[in-house]
């Protein structure tokens, strides 16, 4: 079964660089530009009877930020999905807030592809 990852970031540069990195490692990628956009994507996927293997989200985004997104996801049947945060935000309080909301892991930008893939590997089983 194809594993795909939902990547949420308002910066097209980040989205495309992350996508490039993930695709090279064999994952498929669905992109969303903010939290709202991401929730819509999840609902679309659910209708198709599908779901991502992992969610990779930024924190500071317009419309709906990452923390809110995580909290919203945790209230749905997608609550068991691993959610990785990829952000420039490195403040302890913020990380703690993310953890309490239900984030599975926290990666600080600028990211190194190996680190990112290593973190994803902890949550997604790839044969």
């Amino acid at each position: 079964m194809e594993k795909f990852i939902l990547v949420i970031d308002d910066s097209p540069t980040i989205r495309s660089s992350v996508t490039f990195c993930l695709q090279k490692a064999g994952y498929s990628v669905i992109q969303a530009k903010d939290g709202e956009n991401a929730l819509e994507a999840l609902i679309r996927l659910k209708k198709k009877g599908s779901m991502p293997a992992l969610i990779l989200t930024d924190i500071n985004m317009p419309n709906m930020d990452g923390i809110t997104l995580i909290q919203r996801i945790k209230a749905t049947e997608f609550r068991f999905l691993p959610i990785l945060v990829l952000t420039t935000e490195g403040e302890r309080a913020m990380i703690e807030k993310g953890r309490q909301s239900g984030a599975s892991g926290w990666i600080i930008k600028p990211f190194n592809p190996e680190e990112l893939l290593g973190a994803i590997k902890k949550f997604v089983y790839m044969k």
Binding site: L54, F80, L81, P82, G102, S104, K122, Y125
Partner: peptide
């Protein structure tokens, strides 16, 4: 599981 963790993956890693 609520934090998206899967112990099997940890053991595999």
């Amino acid at each position: 599981f609520l934090s998206g963790q899967d112990p099997i993956l940890l053991l595999l890693a």
